Amino acid sequence: MGLTSSLCISADANLTSALDLTTASAPVTVRAATAWQSGTGAGKADKAFSDRRTLAASATEDLDLAGVLLDAFGATITFARIKGLYIRADAANTNNVVIGGAASNAWSTLLGATGTITLRPGGALGLTTGSADATAYAVTAGTGDLLKVANSGAGTPVSYDIVIIGASA
């Protein structure tokens, strides 16, 4: 089974100021995009996971990146390296979605063992490695493979979308 994949992160901003006879502007456009061909080396990925998930009020889940998640065809995925990550909190959420900080076996190559990122309703996180990067973000089965996702509060559930692109070796 082959995989072609890409992840793009971009930002556009245009700061303007009205002057006497004109309006000055300072436009900025930046874009980071990575495309991977099928495989496991530099510039390649062979595994992908995607899902829309919902957590009950105050609930957490640990996504096991090595041997528990299923791909779109029902096959078990074992990531050795993460090359792209996209997580978006649903705009209709009342509570935040908190990423990271698993109590044990945390996937720590991104945020450290205890670091977290809070996604407010409608917020998103996009991460990509460069196409020349063969190392990427390592996953260590059994000791460093849990990506914790948490609902920050009580009262209401939260939903989020997640896409993980990586390699099995």
Rank of each mutant, 00 (worst) to 15 (best):
1 M>W: 06
1 M>Y: 09
3 L>V: 11
3 L>Q: 10
3 L>N: 08
4 T>D: 13
4 T>L: 07
4 T>A: 13
5 S>G: 05
6 S>N: 13
6 S>V: 00
9 I>Q: 13
9 I>Y: 02
9 I>M: 12
10 S>P: 00
11 A>F: 12
13 A>Y: 13
16 T>Y: 08
17 S>L: 15
17 S>D: 00
18 A>N: 12
19 L>H: 00
19 L>V: 11
19 L>Y: 01
20 D>H: 04
21 L>E: 08
21 L>D: 12
22 T>D: 13
22 T>N: 14
23 T>G: 01
23 T>N: 10
28 V>A: 14
28 V>L: 15
29 T>S: 15
31 R>F: 00
32 A>V: 03
33 A>Q: 15
35 A>L: 05
37 Q>L: 11
39 G>A: 05
42 A>V: 06
42 A>D: 08
43 G>H: 07
44 K>L: 09
44 K>G: 00
45 A>T: 12
46 D>H: 07
46 D>K: 01
46 D>W: 04
46 D>T: 03
47 K>N: 09
48 A>Q: 15
52 R>I: 14
52 R>F: 08
55 L>C: 02
56 A>D: 15
56 A>E: 13
56 A>S: 15
59 A>Q: 14
61 E>Q: 15
63 L>R: 15
63 L>N: 05
63 L>K: 14
63 L>Y: 14
63 L>H: 08
64 D>R: 13
65 L>W: 08
65 L>S: 06
66 A>C: 14
66 A>E: 07
67 G>Y: 07
68 V>T: 15
70 L>F: 02
71 D>S: 14
72 A>G: 11
74 G>H: 07
75 A>W: 03
77 I>Y: 09
77 I>G: 11
78 T>M: 03
79 F>S: 06
79 F>R: 07
81 R>N: 09
81 R>E: 09
82 I>M: 05
82 I>A: 04
82 I>Q: 03
83 K>L: 05
84 G>C: 04
84 G>Y: 06
85 L>G: 02
86 Y>N: 05
86 Y>A: 12
90 D>T: 05
92 A>Y: 03
94 T>E: 09
94 T>S: 14
96 N>S: 15
96 N>F: 08
98 V>F: 01
99 I>G: 06
100 G>R: 04
100 G>H: 05
102 A>Y: 12
103 A>M: 05
104 S>E: 05
104 S>K: 08
105 N>Q: 15
108 S>R: 00
108 S>L: 03
109 T>Y: 00
109 T>M: 01
110 L>P: 04
110 L>I: 09
111 L>Y: 08
113 A>C: 00
114 T>W: 03
115 G>P: 04
116 T>L: 07
116 T>S: 11
120 R>E: 13
121 P>Q: 05
124 A>S: 15
125 L>Y: 11
126 G>M: 09
126 G>N: 07
127 L>N: 07
130 G>W: 09
130 G>C: 06
133 D>T: 04
137 Y>E: 06
138 A>G: 07
139 V>R: 04
139 V>T: 05
140 T>K: 01
142 G>C: 00
142 G>R: 03
143 T>I: 10
144 G>T: 01
147 L>M: 11
149 V>S: 12
150 A>P: 04
151 N>H: 12
152 S>K: 12
155 G>N: 08
156 T>W: 03
157 P>C: 01
161 D>I: 02
161 D>A: 13
162 I>Y: 12
163 V>K: 15
163 V>G: 04
164 I>F: 08
164 I>Q: 11
167 A>H: 04
167 A>V: 00
169 A>R: 00
